[in-house]
Write a protein that binds this DNA or RNA. Structure first.
Length: 885
RNA sequence: AGGCACGUAGCUCAGUGGGAGAGCACUUCCCUGACACGGAAGGGGUCGGCGGUUCAAUCCCGCCCGUGCCUACCA
């Protein structure tokens, strides 16, 4: 039964149809009882609030290519999918909804709010999952996980409690990054620094008991309300006499000491620094060193509190304006400079963060990091490209304790209970009703939740059922590979390493492949919070998922960012269509063909057959090599040129006469090769082009052993051994065809015009090769009369082209324009003269001749003599032509 | 401030210690029975600049210029 293929490839129905079939049939499902070797990848879980962007598209396309390739290569593949609850981001989404209803979460209360978030998630969360499916992602969707699932939440508790029991979780009152809008602490990583145009205000602080002023500079003048010292460098000669004295803090009328500390840079500004220990990280350290007072002047929303004197109740930015105005009124504003500095912003809402004193939960990570460093150092986990290892080490070596508590409601609530009677803390896997220390039931559970990245850190094993010892874990942990962008190397990869080693006693993945970042047209990082994302689904709609995937694959060269161009996508859409039409050609010529009855080994193969089989073997080997090394772009490039330039441009054209000819055995052999190469090519392309390859593959004649191309074997090399001498003969014939076409093109011979051609060959074997391939020359070069031989009788007037083994002579007759031929020959001579010059110079260099390896020398000498010979022939030819004038 | 990339054809990007590549765009010719989302033939680059190592450098090293990113406590 044959199905006619439409003339042009139409992706939309095909894609939907096959994806549904695959998924319903369970083709993506990983069997933990399989005896096959395992290959596993956990998806970087997209935020449940997420909308598919280019980064996801690239990331997941690459994972899908690997998974499909490995699945076809005989592995039991688990690609574990799921989404992240994205604490702050998701809470923000629902808060915005509430705001639209003129409500806020505090009115609802915690429980109702969390219910509402769950409801939001049921209704509109996770749309990204369907978007991933449209790309063709072959995840084991039956196993889809969510970081707030019961099982994963259990894993979170287990980890938190055992870290606490090991003394690796503690609470401390420190200065942290505070988002006054989200009302939560943030880890250092969650603060993004952006250079902003601001001012540097120079304030005059009166020295007590003197007419002098100390000038201090600040970018945040409102913090002066919380100043508790002014610091100068201990060796600064300007201020030696002032150390130990004090200044009167303007506006607050507070006497604060002048202290000496090495931290101060004498070169900067006046060399005197105001110290606000409760609102600046450096000042915090100085405050501790000098035992200064810590005055917190802000509340949780960034509003001046009762410690801010008359400024109480003012928002921090208004307070800044007022403080500066008031200082100015007092005549204490020395000057205002323009100043650019890096301002920390909340990575979720872009609000300027505030260093803020607060009691938080921390994970002590130094010891965990040490193990994680060791694992990469010893090669247990390999980072590809390797250059990222340096970045990984750099961060791991300087790692700070991880602030894991967040003052939001959506997330894993910290399993700690405070006892109102004895003041002790009970941390427990199970909810508790009585204090472990005094037995009191007067308990309050910690209201904070954990950093979203805490649960993400457990993803490779929590998704597989941990803390239960599941078969899935046994079979698929550690995972084979993690595919991710470098932007979450610290957020996620480093933390998975630490947690995996700590709790599974083994690294979470053997290899980490770090791919490029897809940027927007300005080269800016695309991110959800910046809102500069381009919808990949538009691209899929317009060009098809396969073309889009091929583009991403071709762009995924290591170590460079990607700026997507739609021209390029169009090019690969054309490629998919080319494949489609080549297949149509094949199907049209295979109507009477039954693959089961044919055996490549028993056939007499033509030059062209042997040649394409040889090229096929090369492409198959190279693609596997490229994929094994994560060289996705190379894989794409190999398959592109094999498909288009070798299979379509040459083999299909060469096969036509054989297919259309009278000789049935030739036709049969050609059909078999055409079928076999196309069928194998489809398998080679399937990981990148899952949809179109399945559609065509299902239409091919004959029966196959498996239901889907995704279950077929991935080609690794030759279909059958080929004779390299015959392959070389074919290349020789192709050279001749190219040479004739060149003359025709350059001399404007009408494409339909058949011409006479003489081939003067260097040797008898060359003659034999050409004889065997002369049919190809006739049809592909449009020749009607071909004379072949060694030292043949040459026509008086002919256009000459030279290949390695053959002089191609085309009698001038009436079809060649003498002027054009002269110009053509001059161009050719000029070209070859350059070569001659190049090699003459190189070979006349004594040092080169003395030092270069013999093979290089020999090769170059051969090239020189060939070039000289070619020049000679062309020059003689030119002389003859000129004689005609 | 430190770190890491990048600078190759008009554009977007590959690539290699031994005579520069692709896609798109461009020029000429062609609707030849798979495909005009096509075919054939072409044009186009002192591989950012200056030095060094080498018989040989676009590739390795140093410096400089330009661009981007990451990390960082300069008020």
């Amino acid at each position: 039964m044959k199905t006619e293929l439409p003339k042009g490839y139409e992706p939309s129905q095909v894609e939907q149809k096959w994806f549904d079939t695959w998924e319903q049939r369970g083709d993506f499902h990983a069997d933990e009882n399989s005896s096959k070797p395992h290959y596993s990848i956990v998806i970087p879980p997209p935020n449940v609030t997420g909308v598919l962007h280019m980064g996801h598209a690239l990331n997941n396309t690459l994972q899908d290519i690997l998974c499909r390739w490995k699945r076809m290569s005989g592995y039991e593949v688990l690609w574990m999918p799921g989404t992240d609850h994205a604490g702050i981001a998701t809470q923000n989404v629902v808060e915005k909804q509430l705001a639209a209803e003129n409500k806020d979460r505090h009115e609802l209360g915690r429980e109702a709010f969390v219910d509402r978030v769950w409801k939001w998630r049921e209704e509109s969360g996770g749309q990204i999952i369907n978007q991933l499916k449209r790309l063709g992602a072959s995840c084991d969707w039956q196993r889809e996980r969510f970081t707030m699932d019961e099982g994963l939440s259990k894993a979170v508790r287990e980890v938190f409690v055992s870290l606490y029991d090991d003394g690796l979780v503690y609470r401390d009152n420190r200065l942290i990054n505070w988002c006054p809008r989200c009302h939560t602490a943030l880890s250092d990583l969650e603060v993004e620094h952006e250079d902003k145009q601001g001012n540097l205000w120079h304030l005059r602080y009166p020295v007590k008991g003197s007419e002098r002023f100390l000038i201090v500079a600040t970018t945040r003048p409102e913090t002066m309300l919380g100043d508790t010292a002014v610091a100068v460098h201990p060796e600064d000669e300007r201020y030696q006499d002032l150390i130990g004295k004090s200044v009167l803090l303007p506006l607050m009328d507070r006497e604060i000491p002048i202290i000496a500390d090495d931290y101060v840079d004498m070169e900067f500004g006046s060399g005197a620094v105001k110290i606000t220990p409760a609102h600046d990280f450096n000042d915090f350290e100085i405050g501790k060193r000098h035992d200064l007072e810590f005055i917190n002047i802000l509340d949780e929303s960034g509003i001046i509190n009762e410690n801010g004197g008359s400024y109480v109740g003012m928002e921090r930015n208004s307070a800044r304006v007022k403080v500066v105005a008031d200082i100015d009124t007092l005549g204490l504003l020395e000057k205002v400079d323009n100043y650019t500095n890096a301002v920390g912003e909340c990575y979720r809402c872009r609000t300027t963060i505030e260093p803020y004193m607060s009691k938080q939960w921390y994970v002590s990570v130094k010891s965990l990091a040490a193990e994680a460093i060791k694992a990469v150092d010893s090669g247990q986990t390999k980072i590809v490209p390797q250059q990222w290892e340096k970045t990984y080490y750099e961060w791991m070596n300087n790692i700070q304790d991880w602030c894991v508590s967040r003052q939001i409601w959506w997330g894993h609530r910290i399993p700690a209970w405070f006892c109102d009677d004895c003041g002790e803390i009970t941390v427990s896997r199970e909810d508790v009703t009585a204090c472990k220390h005094c037995g009191s039931t007067n308990l309050r559970q910690e209201t904070d939740v954990l950093d979203t990245w805490f649960s993400s850190a457990l993803w490779p094993f929590s998704t597989m059922g941990w803390p239960e010892q599941t078969k899935t874990l046994q079979k698929f942990y550690p995972t084979s590979c993690l595919v991710t962008g470098f932007d979450i190397l610290f957020f996620w990869v480093a933390r998975m390493m630490m947690m995996g080693i700590k709790f599974m006693d083994d690294v979470p993945f053997k290899e980490v492949y770090i791919h490029a970042l897809v940027r927007d047209s300005q080269g800016q990082k695309m991110s959800k919070s910046k809102g500069n994302v381009i919808d990949p689904l538009t691209i899929v709609d317009e060009y098809g998922a396969d073309a889009f995937r091929y583009t991403l694959c071709a762009f995924a060269a290591m170590g460079r960012d990607i700026r997507l161009s739609t021209d390029r996508i169009g090019g690969y859409r054309n490629f998919v269509n080319k494949l489609w039409n080549a297949s149509r050609f094949a199907l049209m010529n295979l109507e009477d063909f039954e693959p089961a009855e044919r055996d490549l080994a028993k056939l007499t193969l033509s030059q062209a057959d042997q040649w394409i089989l040889n090229r096929y073997a090369f492409a198959a080997a190279e693609v596997n090599k490229a994929l094994a090394n994560y060289k996705f772009n190379e894989a794409a490039s190999i398959l592109y040129s094999f498909t288009w330039h070798e299979f379509c441009d040459w083999y299909i054209e060469l096969s036509k006469d054989n297919l259309y000819g009278e000789d049935l055995s030739v036709r049969n052999a050609t059909q078999t090769v055409l079928f076999s190469v196309l069928e194998g090519l489809l398998r080679m392309l399937h990981p990148i082009l899952p949809f179109v390859t399945e559609e065509i593959w299902q239409t091919l004649p004959g029966k196959r052993e498996v239901e889907s191309i995704m279950q077929a074997n991935y080609p690794t090399g030759a279909l059958i051994a080929t004779d390299s001498a015959v392959v070389n003969d074919m290349e020789l014939v192709m050279d001749v065809i190219r040479a004739i076409r060149n003359v025709r093109g350059e001399l404007d011979v009408p494409p339909g015009k058949r011409i006479k051609v003489l081939l003067d060959c260097k040797s008898e074997p060359v003659v034999a090769a050409i004889d065997a391939g002369q049919g190809y020359i006739h049809s592909l070069a449009r020749v009607e009369n071909l004379v072949v031989g060694v030292a043949i009788e040459r026509p008086e007037q002919a256009s000459t082209q030279v290949t390695d083994e053959v002089e191609v002579l085309i009698p001038l007759a009436d079809l060649i324009n003498v002027e054009e031929e002269t110009a053509r020959l001059n161009k050719e001579i000029e070209k070859i003269q350059k070569d001659v010059g190049f090699f003459e110079k190189k070979l006349s260099n004594e040092k080169f001749v003395a030092n270069a390896p013999p093979q290089v020398l020999e090769k170059d000498r051969g090239k020189l003599s060939a070039a000289i010979k070619k020049r000679e022939i062309l020059e003689q030819s030119l002389e003859k032509i000129l004689a005609l004038k």
